[in-house]
Design a protein around this nucleic acid. Structure first.
Lengths: 343, 343
DNA sequence: CTTGACATTTACAACGTTATACAGCTGCCA
DNA sequence: TGGCAGCTGTATAACGTTGTAAATGTCAAG
């Protein structure tokens, strides 16, 4: 059977509370007593029962991180960042994935999946503002990814519109005149809408076409979806000279199709992705991509949740994380491919 | 404040235990009573306090899954499989990553990271048998990945030696005579050792060279490491006509180097990876790979842990999961590249 | 109408921890 | 020496749930 405070107390010949005081580093304990109790703790191999502690204190030391999917390396890398940031505060992360489906996101946001957490970090795809409006749950919620509407929750995000404009501006600066967007979600995803908006704004500002024929909607966010979208665009008779994809896997899927069709990247078609996942650093043609600062996002998210835990009902904050455009071969102006990129 | 059983009981005018009985679907409750209590539960929005339930029952409903790294898509996909399998049993998964470092794996195996779990699924890299020998912890442990030594824990694994032999046999069958291995860990990783062994056995059986010059050791398991290893082999003056890599990212990193050196895949050098991650399906040259049945591995792991929970001290089992070699362009005998592969 | 059998409901005691309030003890000052 | 203040340590009561055993209710057979 497991050792409890009671056992240690009996072994050391003191009260339960004194052992508790030692365990919790309560200050008013004489060194002699502390030493004696500690010896018993070590002898018996006592380890606190967290369930009991949680019941008593009302805190669990766990936060949940709900992501659309783990298969996408961006989210996997983000998860790693969050886990590390949480560990720095002695917090454990409970990971969940929603598949980006609204009903799953709803379940998570209302705490039906993980009910033992102090806080929740959610990266929503399809969730609507109204879904969060009547959230009865009282655990703090932090949203990852930009949302356009006003909600009483912290957001950690990069500026999607600006980032998309940066990507498109880069393509336009290379002399590209017909830039397609791959990965629209037909209004069902806030981030996708924002990136489409940035794409449209920048093209319009440059006096270039941004018609619907240049926007390919997809059902998922994987390689397959990017490949399918690229195929559709080409089969429709369009021949853009640049692609801006919603994320890297879709960009890579699209590039595979271009390769099969005998179109060269970047000579015939330049490609820019989003998320800067490692995979894009190592293809036959390395991928230019918008690179969000994942480490910062993870850290900021954890800090936001834990701050809310303190209980101060501060104003909801919108925190902008950094991003930058990393140029690689898929948008190289001219010249030979570079060596193996440095990550 | 949160609603407790007591509040519901007061509201419905019954005892606490009756409410508990309704919540737990205890059978001896009259429909009338059940209805009445349920109405109060709904009215007050009662939700059970899991910390209290855990304290009382001694079970937490959580298992931990400790993986080397999430950035590797194989582990990300595996994590998704485990989370889903656990959800089917109303279990929540607590995810941790060890970086494949022995001290972290030790910490996890001894329960110092997550101390509220009913069971642990660990995918060790550097952990030694002796590290697990004196595991004081009493939560059930299931190991992912084959281990050569005898330990009183369940293993879920594919047969690494056989799988490696299958991969090498495929290359030899294509007429390749000089097959290099990328991703040895200089004895510090059991799985790597087993794959090297399979590689060596198959080559030896075929009367082909398997000398040390054909084995490239690496420090990590990422694209960068594969690229560096490939570079070293070529710079050492070797010109193998086939590569068998420890995993897909390393194979892809190696292929990038081959591309830069003007070596064609598969014409000059055929490449086989391991894990069959999605990324390998979409390169300019798609990657032949050993494909473990990740869904089955996740399911078997969860079932093993939960079975142990039952308490029956059954013999430790070694469960073999399926695998198969998926042939793609990187080992194509001849002919044109196929269309977009079907995942 | 009593009895017994069984279905339903209840009271109470855990589970292991920490917060609260208080009791001893020490040392210091008047 | 008495008294007061500040340290230490302790007994007790929660936290919210479920298992156990006992109390109550119901119904049919005798």
């Amino acid at each position: 059977m497991r050792v409890s405070l009671k056992d240690v107390a009996a072994h050391a010949g003191v009260s339960i509370k004194t052992v508790s005081n030692v365990v919790n580093n309560y200050q008013h304990v004489t060194p002699v007593m502390r030493e004696r109790v500690q010896r018993s703790i070590d002898a018996l191999g006592y380890r606190p029962n967290l369930a009991a502690r949680h019941l008593r204190k009302g805190r669990t030391g766990m936060i949940a991180l709900a992501l659309p999917e783990l298969g996408n390396p961006y989210f996997a890398e983000l998860a790693a960042a969050v886990i590390d940031a949480a560990a720095a505060h002695d917090y454990i992360v409970l990971l969940d994935h929603t598949g980006g489906r609204r009903e799953q996101e709803l379940l998570v946001s209302q705490g039906f999946r993980a009910r033992v957490i102090d806080g929740l970090i959610l990266s929503p795809i399809e969730l609507e503002a109204e879904d969060l409006r009547d959230r009865a749950e009282n655990v703090p919620l932090v949203l990852l990814g930009e949302r356009d509407y006003d909600l009483p929750y912290d957001h950690i995000a990069i500026d999607n519109v600006a980032a998309a404009r940066t990507a498109v501006r880069h393509l336009v600066g290379l002399g590209r005149r017909e830039v397609a967007f791959i990965g629209d979600r037909r209004g069902r995803s806030e981030p996708a809408q924002l990136r489409v908006r940035g794409w449209r704004e920048e093209l319009t500002a440059a006096g270039l076409p941004a018609d619907d024929g240049l926007v390919a909607a997809t059902d998922g966010w994987g390689h397959v979806d990017g490949a399918a979208a690229m195929t559709r665009i080409l089969d429709a008779g369009r021949r853009p000279d640049a692609i801006f994809a919603y994320n890297d896997p879709m960009a890579i899927g699209a590039m595979r199709v271009l390769y099969e069709r005998g179109l060269r990247v970047p000579e015939d078609i330049a490609v820019v992705g989003f998320d800067d996942v490692v995979e894009g650093h190592f293809g036959a043609v390395t991928l230019t991509s918008v690179s969000p600062d994942k480490t910062a996002i993870g850290r900021l998210a954890v800090e936001s949740v834990l701050a809310r835990l303190g209980g101060e009902a501060a104003e909801p904050r919108r925190v902008w994380a950094d991003y930058r455009l990393v140029e690689r071969e898929s948008t190289l102006g001219r010249g030979a491919p570079a060596g193996v990129p440095q990550g």
